[in-house]
Amino acid sequence: MTLATGIGSFPGADQRDFDEALRVVLGELSLPFLPEVPGRGAPAGMIGRTLGLVTELDADLQPAGWRLTGTSGAPPVDQRRARSLLAQDLDTLEEQAATYAGTFKVQVAGPWTLAATVERPRGDKLLADHGARRDLAQALAIGVADHVADVRRRLPGAASLVVQVDEPSLPSVLSGAVATASGFGKHRVVHPPEASEALGWVLDAVRDAGAEAWVHSCAPGAPLALVRGAGAVGLAVDLALVDADGHDALAEALEAGQTVVLGVVPTTMPEDPPTPKALVERVLRWLDLVGLDPEAVGDRLLVAPACGLAGADGTWARRAVDLTSSVARALG
């Protein structure tokens, strides 16, 4: 049976929007997840929420974005706000999913996306400092393990947990395309062995905490073979952005008994919205392209929107979820 899921984000600007998003994913998707509603502010976004999990490092919010403070003691107010929002969301999850018994998914930003986004105390991205990016990855691994334990405590009946590690910046990190603070230069290339090692620390922490480790990247040129080598047992992609090497990596993952999430539903309303039939045919064409039998892949192949839905309006976000569920049912 093909499952329906989502990538993470939803539109909205307050707690009521989160509550509604959670009701939708719990009621409509066969693999529900903890929604993100970044319209509530930077502490509720992908970076802020993940920094809230990292108790080993302190971070605050500057005009240019998130920055490590280099201090110890009480966390800065913005980081405390991120932790408070996440705790509030988890409280709501615990109330709405008290009897949930299936698989549940949560999302965190990956170490390389954080390193390419968060600044050092003295400025410029953590990506510029080998030691700082190493410390960040190791602190993230600890925070993610604690997060898994917290979610498991709140969902005691869940059959299993999945942690989706979001790495949209990983292709830019590997190609040396991340801009410096001045905007006139680029950070040095991070070579695959180092990229794999740091990502592997986080994925290993997920596995050791008793959850499945997936990696999502909706950027062109996502290094899916590297991600699998780092320990990911699930790959989530925007199908429209997958290159030839990526198609091979996805097929190899399915053949190895791992999970693939194909992002096929538009994230914002197109001029000509696709029908469920058209999207089903697109998935079947892809399976034919890589030489896989639809019946053989079973529930290891999932469908989802191409990326997060934060940029959509509420009407399309709900319709995108409905389309995803319809496609999964038809394929199943």
Rank of each mutant, 00 (worst) to 15 (best):
V264T: 06
G231M: 03
A244V: 09
G231P: 05
H247C: 03
G221M: 03
S217I: 06
G231H: 05
T268A: 02
V260N: 01
L235N: 10
V264I: 14
A253K: 02
H247D: 15
P266E: 15
A219N: 02
A249M: 08
E255W: 00
L226T: 14
V265N: 03
G246K: 07
P223L: 10
E255Q: 15
E252R: 12
C218M: 12
E255P: 06
A256Q: 11
A222S: 13
L226G: 11
V260H: 01
T268W: 13
S217L: 06
P223G: 07
P266Q: 15
A244K: 05
A240E: 10
V227W: 14
G246A: 06
D248S: 12
V261Y: 02
E252S: 11
Q258S: 15
V227S: 13
L226C: 15
D238Q: 08
L224C: 09
D245P: 03
G229H: 08
A225P: 00
A222P: 13
G231I: 04
L250G: 09
L235I: 07
T268P: 00
A253T: 08
A232Y: 05
L241M: 04
A256V: 11
A219V: 03
L239N: 10
V233G: 10
V233C: 10
G263T: 01
A251Y: 05
V227Q: 12
E255G: 11
P266G: 14
L262K: 00
V265H: 03
V265M: 10
P223Y: 11
V261D: 04
A225K: 01
L241S: 00
V242F: 06
R228S: 09
A232C: 11
G231F: 05
G263P: 04
C218Q: 03
G229S: 07
L250D: 09
G234L: 03
L224K: 03
T267D: 02
A253G: 11
A222H: 11
D243G: 05
D248E: 15
D238R: 01
A236N: 14
G229P: 10
V264K: 02
T268H: 10
A219H: 08
R228I: 13
E255S: 10
A249Y: 09
C218W: 08
V261R: 02
A232K: 07
L226N: 07
G229C: 04
A225W: 10
A253M: 03
A253L: 11
H216A: 02
V233Y: 00
H216K: 06
G257L: 02
G246C: 13
A251Q: 13
A222Y: 12
E252M: 01
V233W: 07
H216N: 09
D245E: 15
T259P: 09
G221E: 08
T259G: 08
A230G: 07
A232N: 13
V227I: 15
C218E: 11
